[in-house]
Amino acid sequence: MSRTLGGGSLVIATHNAGKLREIQALLAPYGMTCLSAGALGLPEPAETGTTFAENALIKARAAAQSAQLPALADDSGLCVAALGGAPGVYTADWAEAAPYEGGPGRDWYMAMGKVEGKLAELGPDTPRDCWFACVLAIAWPDGESVVYEGRAEGTLTWPPRGTMGFGYDPVFVPKGGLATFAELDPAEKHRISHRADAFAKLVADQFGAKG
Rank of each mutant, 00 (worst) to 15 (best):
residue 193 S to Y: 01
residue 193 S to D: 02
residue 199 F to I: 02
residue 170 P to V: 03
residue 173 V to I: 15
residue 198 A to V: 05
residue 170 P to R: 08
residue 175 K to M: 11
residue 184 L to T: 10
residue 188 E to I: 10
residue 165 G to R: 04
residue 173 V to A: 12
residue 183 E to I: 07
residue 184 L to H: 09
residue 189 K to E: 09
residue 199 F to D: 08
residue 172 F to N: 06
residue 195 R to E: 14
residue 191 R to S: 14
residue 173 V to D: 08
residue 165 G to N: 07
residue 167 G to Q: 01
residue 166 F to C: 02
residue 168 Y to R: 04
residue 200 A to G: 15
residue 175 K to Q: 14
residue 178 L to M: 11
residue 170 P to Q: 06
residue 200 A to Y: 05
residue 184 L to G: 10
residue 177 G to I: 00
residue 171 V to A: 06
residue 179 A to K: 15
residue 176 G to D: 13
residue 192 I to N: 00
residue 178 L to T: 14
residue 165 G to S: 09
residue 196 A to Y: 03
residue 190 H to N: 14
residue 191 R to K: 15
residue 192 I to C: 10
residue 191 R to T: 00
residue 179 A to C: 12
residue 165 G to D: 02
residue 191 R to H: 15
residue 194 H to S: 15
residue 165 G to T: 00
residue 169 D to E: 09
residue 195 R to C: 11
residue 195 R to Q: 13
residue 172 F to V: 00
residue 176 G to M: 11
residue 181 F to G: 00
residue 186 P to I: 03
residue 199 F to M: 15
residue 200 A to N: 14
residue 195 R to N: 13
residue 174 P to G: 07
residue 165 G to Q: 09
residue 170 P to K: 08
residue 190 H to D: 12
residue 189 K to Q: 09
residue 175 K to V: 07
residue 166 F to A: 01
residue 197 D to H: 14
residue 165 G to A: 07
residue 167 G to C: 08
residue 184 L to P: 11
residue 185 D to K: 10
residue 187 A to V: 13
residue 192 I to L: 11
residue 176 G to L: 12
residue 185 D to L: 10
residue 176 G to F: 05
residue 190 H to R: 15
residue 169 D to G: 01
residue 174 P to S: 05
residue 167 G to E: 00
residue 166 F to V: 00
residue 177 G to P: 01
residue 174 P to E: 07
residue 200 A to P: 00
residue 182 A to I: 02
residue 181 F to R: 09
residue 181 F to H: 05
residue 189 K to H: 12
residue 170 P to D: 07
residue 168 Y to D: 09
residue 200 A to T: 13
residue 182 A to S: 15
residue 171 V to T: 06
residue 183 E to Y: 01
residue 169 D to K: 01
residue 200 A to S: 12
residue 182 A to R: 14
residue 171 V to C: 09
residue 191 R to D: 14
residue 188 E to L: 15
residue 189 K to R: 13
residue 184 L to V: 04
residue 179 A to S: 12
residue 197 D to E: 12
residue 177 G to L: 14
residue 183 E to F: 06
residue 167 G to D: 00
residue 180 T to S: 12
residue 167 G to M: 06
residue 177 G to R: 13
residue 195 R to T: 00
residue 183 E to P: 05
residue 172 F to M: 13
residue 175 K to S: 12
residue 170 P to C: 04
residue 194 H to I: 02
residue 197 D to R: 04
residue 170 P to E: 08
residue 197 D to S: 14
residue 183 E to S: 07
residue 197 D to M: 06
residue 194 H to D: 11
residue 196 A to N: 07
residue 183 E to D: 11
residue 168 Y to V: 02
residue 181 F to V: 03
residue 188 E to M: 11
residue 195 R to L: 10
residue 190 H to Q: 12
residue 172 F to R: 04
residue 168 Y to E: 03
residue 186 P to G: 13
residue 200 A to D: 11
residue 184 L to S: 10
residue 199 F to K: 02
residue 177 G to C: 14
residue 170 P to G: 07
residue 171 V to S: 04
residue 168 Y to A: 04
residue 172 F to Q: 08
residue 200 A to V: 07
residue 198 A to L: 13
residue 181 F to D: 02
residue 186 P to S: 14
residue 172 F to H: 06
